[in-house]
Design a protein around this nucleic acid. Structure first.
Lengths: 112, 112
DNA sequence: TTGCATGCCTAATTGCGTTAGGTATTATCG
DNA sequence: CGATAATACCTAACGCAATTAGGCATGCAA
């Protein structure tokens, strides 16, 4: 999937929504997003990490280093209350645009 | 609606989809978009015109000056064959992301 | 021991939305 | 008649953020 703007628009809501089902870390988020989108969203790490840092700076997520699987060092992110609230707002924004697109996609739009 | 990235992602598919129902000019496009989105998408002219110019440069639309309503000078845009093709691609991209979001929005996602 | 997967990160470039203007004509209202 | 809003087009400068292109470290398989 090529559209740069769409990737940008999807990043925040996708990450927030994904973290809704529990804390997660960067590398795993990349794989989950690719899986859930059936390969459509195949983010680079250089896309994801700055977004995560920005979300944290904005107080929407918090991070915590943990050692899992014996000895793997990972930085886990989880949603804050503000993050959950923001997720709802993002969802509404997305759905508003989606509704508009659905109307325009209908072949028989009566003009005026 | 505030999200800059979402505005950017919506602009191209919205304009192409809108032109699918016939040629149109900038100022009217602004009003149609606002109307169809129920005020959610309230674009500035400074957003729209550069996008239209870009679409034309990319061969997705062509423009033509016309005098309508007696004496109003307007620049009408209409889709090219490439534009119609691009619209379908944009639509597929959007729907792919939408499907992924829908999955993530479901409250009970079984992790792995 | 060479490569691939896992796991994190950042700097420079570039594209583009926003802010903030500009110009010109026509319609409306006091 | 004069002012203001609506119609209709446009661009320059700023700033944010995705992409390109790297870097570093560990573990495992061929």
């Amino acid at each position: 999937m090529n559209s740069k703007a769409l990737v940008a628009a999807a990043a925040k809501p996708v990450i927030l929504a994904l973290l809704m089902s529990g804390e997660n870390y960067g590398y795993q988020i990349l794989k989950r997003v690719k899986q859930v989108s059936e390969g459509t969203l195949d983010w680079s790490e250089a896309l994801l990490y700055p977004v995560l840092h920005r979300l944290e700076k904005d107080g929407l997520v918090v991070s915590q280093w943990k050692i899992s699987d014996g000895n793997r060092l990972r930085k886990y992110y989880r949603l804050t209350a503000a993050g959950k609230k923001e997720l709802l707002a993002e969802k509404e924004n997305w759905l508003s645009v989606h509704r508009a697109l659905q109307i325009l996609w209908e072949p028989s739009v009566i003009k005026d």
